[in-house]
Write a protein that binds this DNA or RNA. Sequence first.
DNA 1: AACCAGGACGTGA
DNA 2: TCACGTCATGGT
Length: 251
Amino acid sequence: MKKNTQNFSSKKTKFQTTLRTDIRKIYDCLLASYGPQGWWPLIELCEAGGSNPVKTGSLKGYHPADYTFPESRSQQFEIICGTLLTQNTSWTQVEKALLNLKKLNALSPEALITLCPELLKEAIKPAGYYNQKALRLQNLASWFMELEDRVPEREELLSLKGVGPETADSILLYAFKTPSFVVDAYTRRIVTNLGLADEKADYNYIKALFEDNLPQDPELYQEYHALLVEHAKRYYQKRTAMKNACFLKIV
DNA sequence: AACCAGGACGTGA
DNA sequence: TCACGTCATGGT
């Protein structure tokens, strides 16, 4: 709560305007390179045949350039479950878990809270941490039912078990189309490699780095985060570090 | 055969 | 505050 507000006096400094330009340039460059990513993926769309073979992650469920989702409360809830399940886990594993839940007809808040814990754990096992995630999913389900049509506050989300800053922002941005920028491990790797943040910069610093330099547009935030993930998957994997080859360094 | 994946939380210093 | 252990399956 101190180093975040690095107070550059009242007048706009050259650094600030440059930074703003860079944040925009990075987005433009990523979008030009990879195209719209179609996040958040919905397994509902898998059966509908939606697919994007260009992506490095899962092959299905994406809806590039279509920002109308979620279109229903059911899709909203699916996204929320996804944000919880994908914690420290690859999306392909989450997809298996979500499909298992769907087979059990348990991918609705009403069904999920009544589902017996053992069945729930078995269903989400591919996503790992199934003991805690099962508990937290049911907790999320009852919270979501009581929420009704209200849009939750960030603090409210953070008070839920298993919902930390990234999950809260993902829920706000993708389930509720609220402009809250999502910072994940990939985002952190990219901005530190580009010299836009220090390694020890905390979550809120990096979040503010984007939010302070972009218009508050949920669709822009959604696309930007998805593009950062796609880019990081190609150039910032820990095994095959290609940070030096990252073309964003020259923008 | 280690290492990592679209984190969060509890603990002790 | 903050570094560190824990939770757990399946890819590469």
